[in-house]
């Protein structure tokens, strides 16, 4: 069964990481001191919290991605059957892509694609 193969690979991955971690823990040399437990920031002590609000640009791209990625979900079935459908499929996808392209152009015009 196909899905079983998937599970096998999943378990294999888990086994690889867990096993290697285990072996590493087993054979590695261990030492401890407070400095070693500090975050590494080129030798400077870290200032302020790390989990802060990030620049909105990142999220903006995430939102854009969300939209365009879902659009791929629609294009995939279309692409698969395109050969069988022909003209109608072509016209419809042109409409689809024109709207999508307009959306991209709009985002472009509005400066959503500009990294500030």
């Amino acid at each position: 069964m196909e899905s079983e193969a998937l599970i096998v690979f999943f378990l294999a991955g888990v086994a690889l990481v867990a096993g290697a971690n285990f072996i590493s823990n087993l054979i590695s040399h261990k030492s401890d001191n407070p400095q070693k437990r500090e975050p590494y920031e080129s030798g400077m002590p870290t200032i302020g919290p790390t989990w802060v609000q990030f620049k909105v640009g990142y999220y903006l791209y995430a939102i854009l991605f969300l939209i365009f990625d879902v659009e791929i979900a629609f294009l995939v079935p279309w692409a698969v059957v395109f050969k069988d459908l022909g003209t109608v499929a072509f016209i419809e996808i042109i409409i689809f892509l024109v709207i999508l392209g307009l959306g991209l152009a709009y985002a472009w015009r509005k400066g959503a694609l500009k990294w500030q």
Binding site: E41, T46, T50, W51, Y61, A62, F65, D69
Partner: peptide
């Protein structure tokens, strides 16, 4: 990791990966 370098790297990676995934 709770490390600033790591965090910035991850955010960059995120935005880069999702962009190019398209």
């Amino acid at each position: 990791s709770n490390n600033k370098f790591a965090m910035i790297g991850a955010m960059r990676s995120g935005v880069q990966t999702i962009s190019y995934e398209l």
